[in-house]
């Protein structure tokens, strides 16, 4: 376990002492070093001074909102950020993802889930040559040659389908909110036209998923967006 985190430093910004303590136990047992901040502004200072490998950010903070922390952070740092929220904060969740958060978790969550998400985030954060080809299940997406194969067979995708798959693939593991996808594929005027997405995701699933009715890779995050799960 100790080697997993390889002594990477994770900053936890949350005003609840108990949550911080719990996260510290979970993270330290997984081999991470943990720094804590109990509000947004001290949290931002910590990021500046310590340059942590990842940030776990609660959305409800006493001084400035989690979203504001994220916006200020993203002005100069690309550190991976995992957002914690409670039920019913969908709008804030979407706002945080749109503002540059890498993933989110809804309280209450399990420690295992947290570590898994953190792992994916950190991996994506590392520069890697693998980005040219992304594999999930039987599917291979060659981003250089713009070719998609499933079990060795070429899969024919339309331009938009490919663009959608590519967007999810380069951000593999990360939730991409509806608005972002629509903006990038159909332009800013189409930000509300979620039916486009449903239709195109449906087509991609039909072409790429083993069981399109119960997709393993092209996952829906209800009310928020989509995520490509590669492992």
């Amino acid at each position: 376990m100790t080697e997993e985190g390889s002594r990477l430093e994770v900053l936890v910004i949350d005003d609840e002492t108990q949550i911080r303590r719990l996260l510290r136990v979970t993270l330290e047992s997984a081999g991470y070093r943990v720094r804590e901040a109990d509000a947004g502004l001290p949290g931002l200072a910590e990021v500046t001074f310590r340059r942590p490998a990842a940030v776990i950010l609660d959305l409800g903070l006493p001084d400035i909102s989690g979203c504001d922390v994220l916006k200020r952070l993203r002005e100069w740092s690309q550190v991976p950020v995992l957002v914690l929220s409670v039920l019913g904060q969908d709008d804030q969740k979407i706002g945080a993802l749109d503002a540059g958060a890498d993933d989110y978790l809804t309280k209450p969550f399990s420690g295992g889930e947290l570590l898994a998400r953190l792992r994916v985030m950190l991996r994506r954060g590392q520069p890697s040559d693998d980005l040219k080809v992304i594999r999930f299940g039987e599917v291979e997406v060659d981003l250089v040659r713009r070719v998609v194969t499933r079990g060795g067979q070429d899969v024919k995708l339309t331009a938009k389908e490919y663009a959608l798959l590519r967007l999810l693939a380069v951000n593999a593991g990360k939730v991409i909110v509806h608005r972002q996808i629509l903006r990038e594929l159909w332009g800013p005027n189409a930000e509300e036209q979620t039916q486009y997405l449903r239709v195109y995701i449906g087509r991609l699933r039909q072409k790429l998923e083993e069981n399109p009715n119960n997709p393993r890779h092209l996952r829906t995050e209800s009310g928020i967006g989509y995520r490509l799960v590669v492992e």
Partner: peptide, 22 residues
């Protein structure tokens, strides 16, 4: 939420299969 009237449904296009899966 229901009783306080704070419930404002956000209607959006839903895919049945996605919904049932979730």
């Amino acid at each position: 939420r229901l009783e306080s009237g704070a419930l404002r449904p956000k209607l959006d296009w839903c895919d049945t299969q996605d919904l049932l899966n979730a």
